[in-house]
Design a protein around this nucleic acid. Structure first.
Lengths: 234, 234
DNA sequence: ACAAAAGTGTTCCCGCTACACCCATGT
DNA sequence: ACATGGGTGTAGCGGGAACACTTTTGT
């Protein structure tokens, strides 16, 4: 372990710390995850969650946000840590502990690769390649986290455009929770929650009849959340 | 930073990592937290959350469990991490990142101090002393976490004896959620959930009429949880 | 005109809420 | 006997689930 290159020394052993982002997007039909192809060993050529080492002057939240910025050109709506992965041998190089982050972004089919020219690509969440390290495990926990949150908090909007139709919103919920809802009950529940603003426009989805557009009423939601009057469950 | 004592060297800076435990207990009336008095600087003589440094061969979960074992003689029923506190300057000595753990234990008024003879004491959660570092912030987040969890998962039993009465259970929920429930509705909801086993015994609480005893049906709960049929909300 | 998707309303039922009376026990 | 706290039952209401018909639009 000792060499001229190792100039950061401590009295006791310290783990390296990284953050990894599980970035979800929604293309209108499928829930997607953004992966990057690793350029260097270990696991060179293997797909992995985008992430990187914690810098000495940043919090893990800042680190995750920075990584996200560096590796994608996506608008991040939600970024929150979930758990810790700290098995001593999860990285073959040295001890690396990682803080995984759940990220919800506005989907855009073209993502730039990272600064280091790594390839970045969207995958359907049920058609993913093998992942490096214990990233598959991290991904599984991320899905669970996403499902848990969306059960009670209106985070679905983070994955949609500013304006969206009710069928789109329903498809999203169904894709995340992996269940089917009744159209009418879903719509009523959503509208009754009071956090949707009906717009006077309609959007034509190439399908057949055009659907009405809505907008998420963030102000109303924040206010309801404050005085504890917000309650919705799926 | 470099000295003969600092023999663990790395190419890039690594933070020190600790786990801290927010240990909750219930004495029958009040929700309590276990604190230890710090023996050494910084914050010598100040009360703090029990915790300690991550060892090179253990996960954070193992670290938290070890600390809990070393510092208390309590039976731990639940031990789960929540979040990360990683402000670079939260510890004046060097950069120390901490993973806080929520711990629920069977309350016992006498707790032994740690191996290092630190004093350990229970405090009412609304009569706590000043805390070292950012531990007050960690505590606040722990309470929120506890409230969030107990809303939907039957973790209250972790804080009670094997056998308990309905009024005790209700008092616990009220202490955690800081609300009042109607006796009859609370009881019905609990019983309807199907995870309580009524016992044929009664316990005399010195009050007046003796109350019936119940036991938590963990097997039933696990089974219901597996097939997704468990649903309760407070 | 037809198919595919979106808009809308009604009924039923379960679970939550609010509330009142009786019973057991210690003083 | 009385006070304190525990056990039990009921009526009303609101929200969720199940469900059918009409309307729009592209082919």
């Amino acid at each position: 372990m000792e060499s001229a290159e190792n100039k950061f020394c401590y009295k006791y052993p310290h783990p390296a710390v990284t953050t990894d982002c599980v970035i979800f997007g929604f293309d209108g039909n499928y829930l997607k995850i953004l992966l990057v192809k690793r350029g260097v060993d270990p696991y060179a050529g293997c797909w992995a969650l985008p992430g990187g080492f914690l810098k000495p002057d940043e919090t893990v939240e800042e680190c995750a946000a920075r990584e996200l910025r560096e590796e994608t050109n996506l608008q991040t709506e939600l970024l929150q840590p979930f758990g810790v992965f700290s098995k001593p041998d999860r990285d073959p190089r040295e001890r690396v502990m990682t803080i995984p982050f759940l990220a919800l972004v506005k989907y855009s089919p073209n993502v730039k690769g990272g600064d280091d020219a790594r390839e970045a690509r969207w995958f359907d969440i049920d058609a993913m390649p093998e992942l490096a390290f214990d990233h598959k495990e991290i991904f599984k926990k991320a899905i669970q986290q996403l499902q848990r949150i969306i059960h009670f908090e209106p985070i679905g909007f983070d994955l949609l455009e500013e304006k969206f139709t009710m069928p789109e919103l329903q498809k999203l919920y169904q894709a995340i929770l992996n269940v089917e809802f009744d159209r009418r009950n879903f719509q009523r529940k959503m509208l009754n929650s009071g956090i949707l603003i009906p717009l006077d426009e309609k959007e034509n989805r190439g399908g057949h009849r055009s659907a009405a557009l809505f907008r998420f009423d963030k102000e109303k939601y924040d206010q309801m959340k404050l005085n504890g009057s917000f309650r919705i469950e799926f």
